[in-house]
Each structure stands twice: as C-alpha cells, then as structure tokens.
C-alpha cells in the first residue's frame, strides 16, 4: 500500500477501507469516488442533505448494494449490524418484542443453533438496557415509534457487532428516547466498537460525535466534527446538484476506459478536515 506512509490513521487498525468507492443506482452515482479509512473503534457521524448518498453508503458497507466501481473492504472477522432507515420490518407480523429482539441472535446461533440460557439472558439484558423491561410479551404491532426504535436498538445490542451502521436512527423519535439511544451509542464507542451513524441534527453531531463525514455525493470533508462542520464546508455541501440528471455526462474516470488516473479530480474537493 503506497499511501500508508501518508495516512496518519494507518497507525490504528482500519475497520473500513474505501478505495475509489462509487455506489449508485442505474449507472447514476449516489456516492462518487470515496476514498478513506475508518479506524477501528471510531464513532463517525455521516451528514449531508437528502440525496447526498448517506443511506447508499450504509447499504454499500452492509453489502446490500454492489459497488459500481472501487471497493469497500471490511476488516476480516468483523461482525456487522445494520439498522436501515426504511426498515422492511413487517409490524403486523405475529411476534412479540422478545421474538423481534431474539432475531439478533442470528450471528451467534445461525439457522439451527439452539438458543441457550445465556442467549435468553442476553436478550433480557438488552431489553433492560434500552428501557423496555417488562415489554417482552407485548405484540410488536402495539409498540409506539419510539418503543419500536428502542426494540431495534436492543436487537443491535444482542447482535454484539464490531461494526454498527445506524441509518437515521433518531428520526421521529422524542428527545428522551434520543438521549437514551445516544447513551447506548456512547457505550458502544467506549467498548471500541466502530459505529457509523447517519444524523441530520448537527448540534447532536457536535455534542456527541468525535468525527464526521460530510457527504454531498462526493466527500466534502471528513475529519474531526468541529472542523468538518465549518460554515465553509456546509456551504460547499449545499452547492452540489441534487437533481437527477438523466443525461449527466459520463464520469471522466470511467470514460477513460478504466484509466489509471482514477478519482483524482475529486480528491481536490476534500477540504479542511480531510486527512
């Protein structure tokens, strides 16, 4: 790796490594030529306007979306937990809270492994941690939005993952719930887990997240939250074209037939706070 010498964060083990990562739909990129590393144990906020590629990046990391170009590599042996923005959870499914949270045992027990006493204990501990003690037997279609979010966090807890991806987990959730859930995120950070959270509330980011990635399809800035969220960078992020341009010209990097110059035309746009 030639860039190891330049990269400060390479001292710490990288959990995620983006190399010229381009993700998108129908040949239109939503995340364009992203380069960089996420160190193990970092707590990273991913911010940006609607359509800036935040959710797409999460899907790409979770392996639910194949890259159009470049790679996104996760350190070997990393267990991943992903809480999507638009959950496909069927709330009308006949299940109790405890059944929903027990899904989180899959990485540990898989398809056929018996759920042991310690697993049931882990589930009840998770329910206590998210403040849903006593809700075990409630049907999931009776939960409020906040309670459901707590239950989903409990499932992430049970998954016991090294890399946790949370896509807008604080949407439509009241302040008390946000504080409780942020508390969990902080605990995960303390446990050296790598946590990536898509957030809209910049005050929340400044208060709780050491690092921030500001996306506007391409990375506008990436580094310590205060620097990344400077006026200049935020203005820069606002100027990108959100509009879906059907006839957008082919990206130069792609058009040069897998040219070796790659993504350099975007590198210069990564401003203050970039590594």
């Amino acid at each position: 790796m030639p860039d190891l010498t330049k990269d400060v964060s390479s001292v710490v083990q990288a959990c995620l490594n983006f190399t010229d990562l381009t993700l998108g739909y129908d040949r239109h990129p939503a995340v364009h030529h992203l380069n960089g590393k996420v160190a193990k144990g970092s707590l990273l906020a991913v911010v940006g306007g609607n359509g800036s590629g935040k959710s797409t990046l999460m899907k790409g990391i979770a392996g639910l979306l194949k890259p159009m170009g470049g790679t996104c590599s996760i350190a070997a042996g990393t267990r991943l937990a992903y809480l999507p923005q638009q959950s496909e959870l069927d709330r009308t499914f006949p299940a109790r809270v405890i059944d929903l949270v027990s899904l989180g045992l899959w990485p540990r027990r898989g398809l056929l492994g018996r759920h042991r006493a310690e697993d049931r204990e882990a589930v009840s501990r998770a329910l206590v941690a998210v403040g849903l003690e006593g809700f075990e037997k409630r049907a999931i279609d009776t939960l409020s939005g906040g309670q459901m979010q707590r239950a989903l966090f409990a499932r992430v807890l049970v998954q016991d993952a090294d890399l946790i991806l949370l896509d807008e987990p604080f949407n439509a959730v009241d302040e008390q719930t946000i504080l409780d859930l942020i508390g969990l995120v902080t605990i995960w950070h303390g446990e050296e887990r790598t946590v990536l959270v898509v957030v809209h509330d910049l005050d929340l980011v400044r208060a709780y997240f050491p690092e921030t990635l500001l996306l506007a399809r391409h990375p506008v800035a990436w580094g310590p939250s205060r620097q990344t969220l400077s006026q200049e960078n935020l203005l820069g992020a606002r100027h990108y074209r959100e509009a879906w341009n059907e006839n957008a010209p082919w990206c130069a990097a792609e058009a040069s037939v897998h040219g070796s110059h790659g993504h350099s035309h975007h590198q210069d746009r990564v401003k203050a706070g970039a590594r």
Binding site: A62, L80, Y82, E88, L89, D99, L100, L103, W106, L111
Partner: peptide
C-alpha cells in the same frame, strides 16, 4: 428460523 426472519424483517435477514 430463516422463514420467520424472512417474513418479519427481510432486510435484516439479508444483512446477517
């Protein structure tokens, strides 16, 4: 277990 997960939360099953 897979059938229940696929019915209840297919995206979750895909992620694990």
């Amino acid at each position: 277990r897979a059938l229940v997960a696929e019915c209840m939360d297919p995206l979750f099953l895909r992620s694990v």
